[in-house]
């Protein structure tokens, strides 16, 4: 499992994919940060994180599209599946590699807060005594956790889709669509008049659960929700492989 993890992580940076992904991620994050905080003269980072989630529609498929489809196309999965590694071990190794790269880029993107903090330090000197100036720590940490959990969820979905096809391109397109639906359900459900449909869609929506984190609350049920969605899709990926063996 660790061998696969290492190999996958390395593979991101021996092909352009890893660079494209980190590049777009960091550039988009910086732009969004500039537009939502500095330009708005606001220390509120919630919008920044919410918009960041929208970039995942493009970014997560970059991470996951080749994971399994490439192995299948190049027949290298035959090596993995005949090596003394369980299917679960293989799936988790690949998942952790994508997740590790994702988390590191999210953490690196935190450099975007430096301008905010430096502004805050300057302003603080002229502000009234005791007033809080600058980004709220709890909110930022909450949002970071929320974003990472949502990413964990999407990566599992992406890996599952990648395991279904031999073509990277179709894996990417389908993953884009799937993640877009998961996000947009939350955006559009406010326009739906029927209450019960709204409740259902709200439950499916990934975004609605993010709101709690945005308030700086650590929502245990949301944590459980994201982890179980990720778990279900990883389980399904393992099943895809099991099924193909028996098919």
């Amino acid at each position: 499992m660790f061998a696969i993890f290492k190999k996958e992580l390395r593979a991101y940076f021996t092909s352009p994919v890893g660079y494209v992904y980190t590049g777009i991620f960091l550039a988009a994050a910086a732009l969004i940060c500039a537009f939502t905080t500095i330009q708005q003269a606001s220390y509120n980072t919630t919008t920044y994180f919410q918009y960041m989630i929208f970039t995942f529609i493009i970014l997560i498929p970059l991470l996951t599209m080749r994971s399994f489809s490439e192995e299948r196309k190049m027949r290298t999965e035959q090596l993995l599946l005949t090596a003394p590694v369980t299917i679960t071990g293989m799936v988790i190794g690949k998942y952790l590699a994508a997740f590790a790269l994702f988390v590191s880029t999210v953490l690196v993107s935190c450099i975007n807060f430096f301008p905010l903090i430096s502004y805050a330090i300057i302003e603080k000197s002229s502000a009234a005594n005791g007033a809080h100036v600058g980004p709220v720590g709890g909110q930022v940490v909450g949002c970071l956790i929320g974003v990472i959990l949502i990413g964990a969820c999407f990566i599992a979905v992406g890996l599952f889709i990648s395991s279904l096809t031999e073509s990277q391109l179709s894996a990417a397109v389908i993953t884009v669509a799937a993640i877009a639906v998961m996000i947009l359900v939350g955006v559009f459900n406010q326009f739906i008049g029927v209450a019960w449909i709204r409740t259902v869609l709200d439950w499916i929506s990934v975004l609605s659960r993010f709101d709690h984190f945005a308030y700086g609350l650590f929502d245990f049920s949301a944590l459980l929700y994201y982890l179980s969605v990720a778990g279900v899709f990883l389980f399904l990926t393992v099943r895809v492989y099991e099924k193909r063996r028996w098919g």
């Binding site: 061998a3 190999k7 190049m74 290298t76 035959q78 090596l79 090596a83």
Partner: peptide, 21 residues
């Protein structure tokens, strides 16, 4: 042959070595 084309022979064999534990 299940080869990763973007690896060197050395990297590939080391990967297999680790994979097989």
């Amino acid at each position: 042959p299940p080869l990763y084309l973007d690896m060197t022979v050395e990297e590939y064999l080391i990967f297999v070595y680790n994979l097989k534990g």
